[in-house]
Simulated scan of single mutants.
Amino acid sequence: MEGSLCDSGTVEVIGPIASTVEDAMLVYAAMLGASPTSRISLKPSPPCLPTLSLDGGSNALGSLRIGKYTPWFNNVHSTEASDKCEDALSQLSKDHGCEMIEVVIPELLEMRTAHLVSIGSECLSSLNPDLEDGKGIKLTYDTRVSMALFRSFTAGDYVAAQCLRRRIMYYFMEIFKKVDVIVTPTTGMTAPRIPPSALESGETDMPTTGYLMRFVVPANLLGLPAISIPVGYDKEGLPIGLQIIGRPWAEATILRVASAVEKPCGESKKRPVSYYDVLRAN
């Protein structure tokens, strides 16, 4: 069986979206593939996925060290998001005795800049053949604005972004000497309302985009394994997620932690107002 791998840039990744941690593991295992030709040049150790059914009778997370950068929990649009994440972490510590350790994430502005330059440059490079063929007029206005911004980046900007990327990776690897995972709210706000005008012509709303992207940048830029797990809802019934980031090749650890978070939080899952059962035949 062939595996799946994105090849259109260094920040483009492929990952499963599933209703449970166990389902995510099944899809992830299929994505890895069984064919020798699917193995990438880094040749990582064979994937080690946790056996969740065995975790219930043991304290598999008792020695887990959880890294938390408090300013990230304070830098949200509404405290509902951070409060729900704090509740989930408190329950995790209570149930399993995990140790919470305060960490410091340096150069946040530089990290966001490196991410923007990297993803923008690679996006433009990927779309350039279509843009040169005149297909750019089919893009929405917000996408055209983004393309115009990306054209302002130079080759030197891209190289500088990669230097920053390497430095920030060093910072994170130093943090992972002290903790096993780093936790953040998945987003800085719950799902925003989409104005009717955006359905036709798109929307450029940088402040909102900033809140939605704020905490996913590190894992995306550095290629670290990460997972988002639902931990509750805001007062309008919109879901709130907790993000768990691990060190390279530590998928088993973040999956085990996500499963532990899912058990107490999963009981309150709600079906959205607009729901489509994709597994049911029409």
Results as ranks from 00 to 15, higher is better:
88 A>H: 03
13 V>S: 10
250 A>K: 07
263 K>R: 15
202 G>M: 09
118 S>R: 04
223 G>H: 05
206 M>G: 01
102 E>M: 00
100 M>W: 11
207 P>L: 09
245 I>R: 03
80 E>V: 06
126 S>N: 07
256 R>A: 13
14 I>Y: 06
136 G>N: 10
252 A>G: 15
92 L>V: 04
26 L>P: 00
255 L>V: 08
208 T>R: 13
72 W>I: 00
218 P>D: 00
261 V>Y: 02
14 I>V: 15
247 R>I: 01
101 I>G: 03
72 W>S: 01
256 R>K: 14
158 Y>F: 15
25 M>F: 06
129 P>D: 03
35 S>G: 09
54 L>A: 15
155 A>P: 00
58 S>D: 06
94 K>H: 10
36 P>R: 08
170 Y>K: 15
261 V>L: 01
199 L>C: 06
204 T>Q: 08
179 V>F: 08
145 V>M: 12
103 V>D: 03
200 E>V: 11
20 T>F: 00
223 G>C: 08
60 A>V: 04
26 L>R: 13
70 T>M: 13
262 E>K: 02
169 M>F: 10
17 I>W: 03
51 T>N: 15
63 S>W: 05
93 S>P: 01
248 P>N: 08
200 E>Y: 04
238 L>I: 12
274 S>D: 14
123 C>Y: 07
227 I>D: 02
248 P>L: 05
226 A>L: 06
142 D>A: 14
245 I>E: 01
137 I>N: 07
169 M>W: 05
19 S>T: 13
25 M>G: 03
140 T>L: 13
168 I>R: 00
192 P>C: 02
104 V>K: 15
84 K>M: 12
159 V>F: 08
127 L>M: 07
68 K>C: 08
195 P>R: 11
162 Q>S: 04
151 R>Q: 14
186 T>A: 11
103 V>A: 05
7 D>A: 07
33 G>K: 01
210 G>E: 06
173 M>H: 12
198 A>H: 02
274 S>Y: 14
19 S>C: 04
180 D>N: 06
138 K>Y: 10
170 Y>V: 03
249 W>E: 07
167 R>S: 09
195 P>D: 10
244 I>P: 01
20 T>G: 00
240 I>T: 06
62 G>W: 04
214 R>V: 00
55 D>K: 12
74 N>H: 13
74 N>P: 00
2 E>R: 09
134 G>Y: 10
204 T>N: 05
95 D>C: 09
90 S>G: 06
258 A>W: 02
39 R>W: 09
120 G>C: 12
133 D>K: 15
13 V>T: 09
238 L>D: 03
259 S>D: 11
180 D>M: 02
137 I>K: 14
225 P>R: 03
272 P>N: 11
272 P>K: 09
35 S>C: 13
144 R>A: 10
248 P>Q: 01
209 T>L: 14
62 G>V: 00
173 M>P: 00
247 R>M: 06
97 G>A: 08
269 K>S: 07
69 Y>K: 01
70 T>I: 11
150 F>I: 00
212 L>I: 09
129 P>S: 03
104 V>G: 04
85 C>S: 02
23 D>A: 09
31 M>C: 10
54 L>K: 15
213 M>C: 14
159 V>P: 00
97 G>Y: 09
234 D>P: 02
13 V>K: 05
58 S>L: 13
92 L>H: 08
89 L>Q: 08
15 G>T: 02
81 A>M: 07
141 Y>E: 15
179 V>Q: 02
